[in-house]
Amino acid sequence: MAEVRRHRNGPVTYALRLAVVAYLVLLIGWPLALVGTHAFENGTEAIRGIFEDPDMVAALRLTAVAAVVATAINTVFGVAVSLLLVRNEFPGKRVLSALIDLPLSVSPIVVGLALVLVYGGRDGWFGPTLESAGIEVIFSTPGIVMATAFVALPLVIREVVPVLKEVGTEQEQAARSLGASGWQTFWRITLPSIKWAVVYGVVLTLARSLGEFGAVKVVSGNVLGETRTATLAVEEKYLNFDQEGAYAIAFLLASVSVLAILIVSVLRAIGARQATR
């Protein structure tokens, strides 16, 4: 298809190509490469230093745990809401479908503030009740997980909904008419057909969750070795003039996000090739 549309390559084509490449290199490519070179200025010493510091290991572990839990929650919620939105009619569906996208355009600081106002231990709406039941949300891991889940909420849904719309219900109806239970139909028919969309959604959610900063900063309290996440540690190290350490953690985080993008783009390319075959 692309072949047919190709225009002859005039000077405009080359000028546009050059401008786009230059802009992307200056804005993203070059700065990103600099993080790598800064992190390895003294060989692998800076990275080793991170893994030898128990507080930094704790920060990395907390980030990983929060991201995995938030991703698991968002995946189950995302698949369920996608099915509800695509396969059912119910009052308020249009409002729900619009509101689902809200977390993408709310400032992370506002997310943090919103959670503190409701779950804050001292004077939140539900905080004191939860606190007396022994559940601490704000300044603790549950708060970090909630902030992370909030900011990444729509990512799975945005991937799954278009695919669900496209596959339709024929196969599901066939399975049901042959006596499969709803549960069997879901596992054997529906889930396999949206498998890749779920995988993209999970990878994107994981990448987004590992990197959340603003919302986590507000809800975590940033206690060294306890509620300090990896992104908070980047800020702390940079502001304390430990630039090498900051670049080392930044490099680790950046590697994960670039890897996530690469995985998704390779899977998409394979998917597109299979679709055209």
Partner: peptide, 19 residues
């Protein structure tokens, strides 16, 4: 370029500031 376009989506914002 396709990969580079998506970097701002996935890169932690604090890292974006640092780069």
């Amino acid at each position: 370029l396709e990969v580079v376009i998506d970097v701002p989506f996935a890169l932690p914002t604090i890292v974006a500031g640092l780069v």
